[in-house]
Computed example of a mutant assay.
Amino acid sequence: MYLADEAWPDLESYFESESLALVPLGSTEQHGPHLPEATDHLIAESFARAAAEDTGYLCTPTISVGVSPHHRQFHGTMWADAPAFRDYVESITRNLSYHGIDRVVFVNAHGGNVEHLREVGRRLRDDGTMYAIEWMWDESITDLIEAAFETPGPHGGPKETSLVQYLAPELVHEDRIEDARDGGLREFDESTGRVHGARTFYDAIDNTENGVLGDQTDASAEVGEELFEAALSNLCHLCEWLADQRFEDLLPKAHV
């Protein structure tokens, strides 16, 4: 069920019988010369709405601008300052508790949001309002991604390229795939940008001239479909697990 499509009287039965909602979040930021700036929020919404359809749980509208100042040098990137993002997400998530929701899955597709969603979840849990947990699609299928790509890349690489080729192929500039690889940073690991153990970079452009990492020529819509279905299965199982928990068991443990 997609909340924004429903008239308010038709939502009453959901809130009477269910207490879980999916909240998709992404970003509006550069994803190289070949992918749309909508990449992250397009992916997040696709997962959340598909999971809602498969499970019957409620999906809210998507938060499409995230914490992305590290991509600001590239045209069109939008971002929210981290404190404002946290407060906004917390506020609209608390809105759901007013209607009876006491557990939320943040369906996230932007790495820059992760730590802030975890903080929001902690605030909501610590005051007993609800249990909100962050879910990141690629972190749920790491083995599959490693098997599919030699250099998956954390941003604008073949894993995101494959998903968008599957979900919205009309938005992919296929003629720029090789340019994305050749103008970006193909190899990226924990040693990249580090000097004597210190992480010296703050922005994406410090490491990659065109904003992307990995080898995009490994991408395909067929692989994207495989990744999507595998991650979607994990998301649906997470929702069912969370719905089955006693709310009291999700709250912080008592002081020793």
Rank of each mutant, 00 (worst) to 15 (best):
L163M: 10
L167I: 10
I177Q: 11
E209F: 08
T217F: 03
L96G: 03
F47T: 09
R49N: 09
T93F: 01
L251P: 00
L42Y: 06
N234W: 01
L144M: 11
P9M: 12
A231H: 08
A52V: 01
N234I: 00
R118Y: 05
E240T: 07
L144E: 15
Q73D: 14
L3H: 02
E146P: 03
E187S: 03
Q165P: 03
F247K: 05
E174N: 13
N207Q: 13
D244C: 01
E45I: 00
A82N: 05
V195C: 07
R72W: 07
R181T: 15
G197N: 13
D87A: 11
K253R: 15
R49Y: 01
A50K: 15
H110G: 11
V104G: 04
V256W: 11
E160V: 06
G26D: 09
S220Q: 09
L35Q: 13
Q165H: 07
D182R: 13
E229Y: 01
D138E: 14
T28F: 09
P158G: 02
A230Y: 02
I145L: 13
L167K: 12
V195I: 11
D206L: 02
Q216R: 14
G121A: 02
L238K: 08
H155E: 12
D81V: 06
F15H: 02
E146M: 07
